[in-house]
């Protein structure tokens, strides 16, 4: 009798997670990635870098196509005309004063983008995380009163910016409300929080997010999208010609 109870308990312990989480970690990440990927988008926004001396604001406009292609042009005074072109496997910079195209490879990708807490490598992280990470659904938690799935993701490939991530994903909208980025040894490097979302064209889109570097004190980067249009015809082709224009 005693053995029967133990066997039943072991069986239940195996079954319960399956019945409680009727969705798998991979499916959650796939849905979270899907709501971030548009056929096309055109956006205007700003990056606010805050440190102990104040706030530095860089404004930009950006275009995206599919999962991997994006073009970002800075419009603020100090860096006006600087552009970043990302394709599936390449990242290019353009400096208008020097009329120079720079192809980012290797270690150059780890450089900070405009002194922010975002590196060029952060920009190259693909939006197809299911193929890049081992994903484990850890449980559920509330973030700012919103029910979220909690997942840990351990990188299977070396081409992603962080070896380990923990994410809190809205159970209803699949918005990522919070994310933590770790080293391989489990040291917390960065934290991202979504501060504001809006429904645009029937899709929930994160309009404001805060990225704080946990290894620094008194610094944070806030990314704001002031205006975004999705699934519209674009005038850019994500080419070197667009980059150097």
């Amino acid at each position: 009798m005693k053995y029967k109870i133990i066997v039943i308990l072991i069986f239940l312990s195996l079954i319960i997670p399956i019945t409680v989480f009727s969705i798998t970690g991979e499916e959650i990440i796939r849905k979270a990635d899907a709501i971030q990927a548009f056929d096309t988008s055109e956006a205007y926004g700003e990056i606010r870098v805050k440190d102990r001396f104040g706030v530095k604001v860089s404004t930009f406009k950006s275009w995206t196509r599919g999962k991997y292609e994006s073009l970002l042009e800075f419009t603020s005074l100090a860096e006006r005309g600087q552009k970043i072109l990302r394709t599936e496997d390449e990242l290019y910079l353009f400096y208008p004063d020097a009329e120079e195209l720079i192809r980012m490879q290797g270690s150059m990708l780890r450089q900070s983008m405009l002194g922010s807490d975002i590196s060029y490598e952060d920009m190259t992280g693909g939006k197809d995380r299911v193929s890049q990470y081992d994903i484990v659904l850890e449980g559920e938690e509330k973030v700012n009163g919103i029910d979220c799935y909690v997942l840990t993701m351990t990188a299977r490939v070396r081409t992603v910016p962080y070896p380990k991530e923990k994410v809190w994903i809205d159970k209803e909208t699949f918005i990522v409300w919070k994310a933590e980025y770790y080293t391989k040894s489990g040291r917390l490097l960065k934290e991202m929080e979504t501060l504001r979302v809006e429904e645009i064209g029937g899709r929930m889109i994160a309009m404001e997010s805060r990225i704080s570097d946990k290894m620094k004190t008194d610094t944070e980067t806030i990314m704001v999208i002031n205006n975004i249009k999705i699934n519209i015809p674009l005038s850019v082709d994500f080419s070197l010609d667009d980059l150097s224009w």
């Binding site: 270690s107 150059m108 780890r110 450089q111 490097l189 570097d213 620094k216």
Partner: peptide, 12 residues
């Protein structure tokens, strides 16, 4: 040749 290494966290 150009190379970058991390020198402690946040420094390069």
């Amino acid at each position: 040749l150009f190379h970058m290494i991390e020198a402690g966290y946040n420094n390069s």
